[in-house]
Computed example of a mutant assay.
Amino acid sequence: MVDMTAEIVLFDGFDELDAIGPYEVLENGAQAGASLETRLVSLGKQTDGPLEEQTDALVTASHGLRVESEGTLGEPDLLLVPGGGWTSEDDGVRAAVEDSPLPAAVEERHAAGATVASVCTGAMVLAEAGLLENRLATTHAVARDDLEAAGADLATARVVDDGDILTAGGVTSGIDLALWLLEREFGADVAEAVATEMEHERRGEVVA
């Protein structure tokens, strides 16, 4: 039995590094001693049935990488939403916000007690879910004005930790977000071991 379950939800047009960077950090965290299980999930092929009974989907990311999820979104302790495609009209975050059950699913998990995190323009999904109203948050530069218009209090930090809601800036900041989560939940030694293993120099400010 692990102490924490984490799920990174994938959708067509997500940015590869937004999801895979944090995934690798969290997986390395488990190898470094964190009691943590991480899964890549999707919402599945939409049907009229319950979300947990829907068929798993093969998801195509923004640069063409095709990823098979490990299952559909469950009830994780930590739910991470990647960004990608905010400036596109066809897929990615823009489509997820305008015509997808993802924001509602994120809101439901948060209401059930999950900590919710976003990388890059994934913050716009959190905003659509109603989670960032009057809360400190950050996102990629292309969406900062939109995030502020959605009611968030903008921060210039690389990572913002507002307790049960965390946001990170542009693409590579997802690695620093995940390292911060390891430090917050499992201690600085675990985070430092993972950063050393990945030869990653942690950078930018974490506002907590």
Rank of each mutant, 00 (worst) to 15 (best):
M1D: 11
V2L: 04
D3W: 07
I8L: 14
L10F: 14
G13R: 03
F14T: 00
A19E: 05
P22C: 01
L26A: 01
G29F: 01
A32W: 02
A34V: 06
L36V: 05
E37N: 12
E37M: 02
R39H: 12
G44Q: 09
Q46P: 02
T47C: 00
E52S: 14
T55G: 04
L58Q: 10
V59P: 02
T60N: 04
S62L: 09
G64S: 06
L65Q: 06
P76Q: 10
P76T: 09
P76A: 06
P76R: 01
D77W: 03
L79C: 08
L80V: 11
S88T: 06
D91S: 13
G92E: 11
V93Y: 07
A96R: 01
D99N: 15
L102D: 02
L102Y: 11
P103I: 07
A104C: 02
E108G: 02
H110S: 15
A114M: 10
T115Q: 15
T115E: 14
S118A: 15
V119S: 11
L126G: 02
A127S: 14
A127L: 12
G130K: 07
L132D: 12
L136I: 08
T139Q: 03
E148N: 03
A155L: 07
A157G: 13
R158M: 04
D161E: 12
G163V: 07
D164N: 14
T172N: 05
G174R: 05
G174W: 04
L179E: 02
L182D: 05
L182N: 01
E183Q: 11
R184Y: 03
F186P: 03
A188M: 01
V190Q: 04
A195G: 13
A195P: 03
H200A: 10
E205H: 06
V207C: 01
A208D: 15
